[in-house]
Amino acid sequence: MDSMTKGMTPIVQAVSGWVKGFILVFGIYLVLYGHLTPGGGFGGGVVIAMAFVLLVLAHGKEEGLRRLPMGVAAELDSVGALMFLIIALLGMFAGLGGSFFTNFIAKAYPGEPYSLLSAGIIPLANIAIALKVASSLFVIFMMLVLMRVVYTEPGKDS
């Protein structure tokens, strides 16, 4: 129970410091290469969120909140979702293709297949989704960690 507030032993903290960096890099790799290899925005986003979860588990919630306050994470959640919607809406402009979710970049600049910059809006959408998924999972995890469960008698609601 204390581990949630104070964190674990120094050994765990030192190891997790290394591991969390690797997890973060792996998550970013999954996001950026999602259109070429297995992975993508959702998988990558969840992995990135796990890096923060590890941080909170090893160093305690104070450290986690210092790195990423709840308010900011909730804003990032909205920003990610809005980014994805805007990418979709941009496709609707006549010059860019004319319908919702047109892959307008791939139409204009088809890019070399199998390269990082192929696939038009797909990498951009992956980044937006990863941002959204990572921040929302961080929020939900922190909510459940921070929540103090105290039994109140019936009829004494605030």
Binding site: M147, Y151, P154
Partner: peptide
């Protein structure tokens, strides 16, 4: 659902 269950626990013990 877990969030709901935890709130319910808080209310009913």
């Amino acid at each position: 659902t877990v969030a709901l269950a935890m709130r319910l626990y808080e209310k009913y013990g």
